[in-house]
Amino acid sequence: MNQLIPAFDFHRVVIAPWTEGFAFSIWIVLMGVLVGTACGLVGNYLLLRRMALVGDAISHSILLGLIVAFLIFRHVDTPVMFAGALAAGLLTVAIIEFIHKQTRVKVDSAICIAFTSLFALGVTLVSLAESAGPVHIDADCVLYGEIALVPLEPPILWGQVALGPPSVLRMAVVTGVLIVGILCFYKELLITSFDPALAKSMGLKTGVWHYGLMTALSLVVVSAFESVGAILAVAMLIVPAMFAAQLSPCLPVRLVLTIGHAVISALLGYHLSIWLKCSAAGAMVVCGSLLFALAWAVTALRARRPVSTSEPESSGLQSAATLPG
């Protein structure tokens, strides 16, 4: 047998994780589902607003936020790091907006200018701080993350009851807030994404909704990167939304499909990682991408079949029925 691919042992790969390894597996898979759901939901809106790259940008500039927060407060407590990363995310968005609005630079170039310079500044500050003394920020950890470490975190206690690893609970809260936000403000997000000019003409504050979405994006990326890493968080932003876009031309259905994608890719990815003894987060994204390829293939095959071009029932209005299709 090839050294690279271990033998497929059904019991080890499929049964054992959910029997003796349950307490371990459940948190990893749950984290995968939560990250996939939160990233995927935001990703749907990014895709619709043609802002897919902004997630990429934010995930890079987070490094600057982390190192600045560390240099100011001199410790690596989660709230401090969290605030720093969030601020860096919003700063990135503000810089992109500023460059785009104040100059004739196009949005894609503005995004590249903003995040590469912030990332470079972050790298510079990390090496600067390292030369002055030991820094507990590991650039590898920021970029790759490690979801398998999630169950090892000391759990948050509520009285005597262990609720679960802090990063999973944090991700759960962020995902919950995001879902409630989309349910409550579906209409506002829809109109500001589809026709911002009309939204503004109706008195909606399109800027507020833009920054609201960008704050959600920053929150999601910041909560996710610890476990799946910044690079994989970017994949989670785009792949589930693209998967859903292949399968449905209806936004609410796409949002639900995104959640389904998150569940399936987390489960498949986890078992794949046990089989191959590889990074779980990486395997989850690989499975997510395979699902996308599958969805694309299905759609492509469906498109090749002759489609019945049934017009809606004519309601007796000749002018509507005789319009050139």
């Binding site: 409550c184 403000f185 506002e188 994404s193 589809f194 026709d195 008195g203 031309p249 796409r254």
Partner: peptide
């Protein structure tokens, strides 16, 4: 606007009513 946006005709016409609706 992007006519590939995942909405149907009714959804678009309903947007005309949004200006009269409260937040949420």
């Amino acid at each position: 606007v992007d006519w590939d946006f995942p909405v149907n005709v009714m959804d678009v016409v309903l947007m005309g009513r949004y200006g009269r609706l409260r937040l949420g």
